[in-house]
């Protein structure tokens, strides 16, 4: 009893176990066992249901490496992820800077909330809203033709740029959020010190502000890149026929082709790529924490 009364946290897993078990059991059943099952399934020839014959095989992985289609699609998904992430940096970082260093008090709080609010609303609905804007005879088309003296046809719908626009819209609040948090932590006196020692605005930006906010940039980039590489709904709705990516192929295996083992192998390869990327970002993030 005596040591239980000591200030601070108490030792021992035993008293903690009843509190921890329900949550972690749930996570095991719904996340960790499924991920392991996926690895298992990816090594099968067929589904082990309804008395179907199945055996172990590496064929699903061989399919990925022998057919250039899959690696090409993975590469184009990685490129999509990179492009969306870059756009999010270009658009989101300046906004985070203004929020953290220019705006003050209540207006900062309100605008910060406004920027991250859409991020917490339904992603599917927001992608659909871009379809309204981008399609031929849509708002962008109508508005531009009303303003411009000559006739132009804007039909961005079902194109690569449409997919980029939709995804950037979906993920840019992430970048604003993470960069804002690190930028806000930079002491203003550091910036003033740099200026008073004769550094130009540009030098202060590149030598002081950007290096200090790097953890936020990396965290934002990882949080955006990873889901974009696995996106399938956004390319489907905004990309149409041009919207075939690695994610849409995985979706096909599960909902229309019904080749689950191949789908599992493709998913697992994506998971491996994602884990490598997160592992590369981890040291920078840990230094920040």
């Amino acid at each position: 009893m005596a040591d239980q009364l000591a200030i601070g946290s108490r030792r021992g897993l035993k008293p903690a176990l009843p509190l921890l078990l329900p949550a972690y059991l749930w996570l095991t059943v719904a996340i960790f066992l499924p991920l392991s099952a996926m690895v298992f399934f990816s090594l099968m020839t067929d589904l082990p249901v309804a008395g179907k014959e199945w055996s172990f095989t590496l064929g699903n992985y061989a399919a990925f490496f022998s057919q250039s289609l899959y690696s090409t699609l993975l590469l184009s998904s990685l490129r999509l992820g990179l492009e969306v992430t870059l756009w999010c940096v270009v658009i989101g970082y300046p906004a985070a800077y203004v929020l953290a260093k220019v705006l003050k008090g209540r207006s900062r709080e309100a605008i910060f909330l406004l920027v991250i609010l859409p991020f917490w609303s339904n992603g599917l609905v927001r992608i659909f809203s871009w379809a309204m804007v981008l399609r031929e005879g849509g708002i962008l088309d109508t508005a531009l033709n009303a303003v411009l003296p000559f006739k132009i046809n804007i039909d961005l719908m079902y194109s690569y740029p449409a997919v980029i626009i939709g995804l950037v819209h979906s993920y840019v609040p992430y970048m604003v959020l993470t960069c804002y948090l690190t930028l806000q932590a930079i002491d203003d006196s550091l910036i003033e010190a740099g200026r008073s020692l004769g550094a130009s605005r540009r030098q202060v930006l590149w030598r002081v502000i950007i290096p200090l906010s790097m953890p936020g940039l990396i965290a934002g980039a990882a949080l955006i890149f990873v889901p974009v590489v696995g996106s399938f709904m956004e390319p489907r709705i905004l990309g149409g026929r041009t919207g075939t990516f690695y994610g849409t192929v995985i979706e096909d295996q599960f909902v229309s082709v019904f080749n689950w083992p191949l789908g599992a192998a493709l998913s697992f390869i994506l998971l491996a790529v994602v884990l490598i990327i997160l592992a590369l970002a981890a040291p920078v993030l840990r230094r920040a924490a």
Partner: peptide, 22 residues
């Protein structure tokens, strides 16, 4: 262990759940 559900793309978790629950 709290991060995999947040960090792994839902496409992967979703398909893995489908396989396992099935």
């Amino acid at each position: 262990l709290l991060f995999p559900p947040i960090a792994i793309p839902w496409l992967i978790t979703g398909t893995a759940m489908l396989i396992f629950f099935f």
